[in-house]
Amino acid sequence: MSDLLRIEDLHTQFHVHGGTVKAVDGVNLTIPAKATVGLVGESGSGKSITALSIMRLLEKNGGITGGHVWFHDRDLVALPDEEMQEIRGNDISMIFQEPMTALNPVFTVGDQIAEAVRLHQKVGHQAGLDRAIEMLRLVGISDPKRRAGQYPHELSGGMRQRVMIAMALSTSPELLIADEPTTALDVTIQAQILKLMRNLKGEFGSAILLITHDLGVVAEMCDSVAVMYAGRIVEQASTEELFASPKHPYTQGLLASIPRLGKRQERLHVIAGSVPNPLAVPPGCAFRPRCPIKAARSDRDIPALKANGSAEHLVACWQYE
């Protein structure tokens, strides 16, 4: 498979009161065409900022300070604003965590999907609306004609997320970035939305970058996974490989802390300590203060992401040096 998106040594920083936060600190990640790649990590690990950096949708106090994002043969980091605007929503779409607030409350959902289409294709209002109804049908909304004339507040959370997906896919993008698409939904709806995304991916042939903190979602959806910690990717592998033999102590800790049915446990495993203060990340490996192994050199130097075992399994930890 050819690579659709290749992130090279991406750095994104934010200027906040009290200093500079290195939210993304040298991320390398490749998304093959038509693949589903998971990006996991806890809150504040930089996964959403990575996504926003790809889209160049960072707030004014932040910016990309280094690296490249190759989309086909174009570097999105260096692209002029107008060209980037053309790519957004057309070649790369994004869906957000909160379906309740991500739709404009004063327009009907049909209008909003039609707008997404008309931003990138020279079609009339009616053609846009027809496409909207077609998309609503594709995302499994019954009576799409009537729903297209309704306002967001008249739809339930699950339906709104379907509308968001319809909007994001209406231009058949090559890459869909889904930032915690199911976090705000209840479990049954979550399963339906994930199933829908899987089905539509087959239909539209889009690659998906799925950002989540839910390893269950990853196991269900992704071909490969990257685990992020404090702005860096610490481990990357195919989904089976990562779940079968996690190599980084952080990944091991994450997997061990998932409660399992049918297994008696006195107490759930927890990773000791907490995420480092983003304004004062310790030197060396950022995970060291919480690490059970504390390999030599990890107090001084940051470990690089290197192949370990197979060429596809990458891990950044000194214990394997």
Binding site: M55, L57, S93, A102, L119
Partner: peptide
């Protein structure tokens, strides 16, 4: 968020 969503749509 809907403003950011609109921006993400181009």
């Amino acid at each position: 968020e809907f403003v950011q969503a609109a921006r993400a749509l181009g």
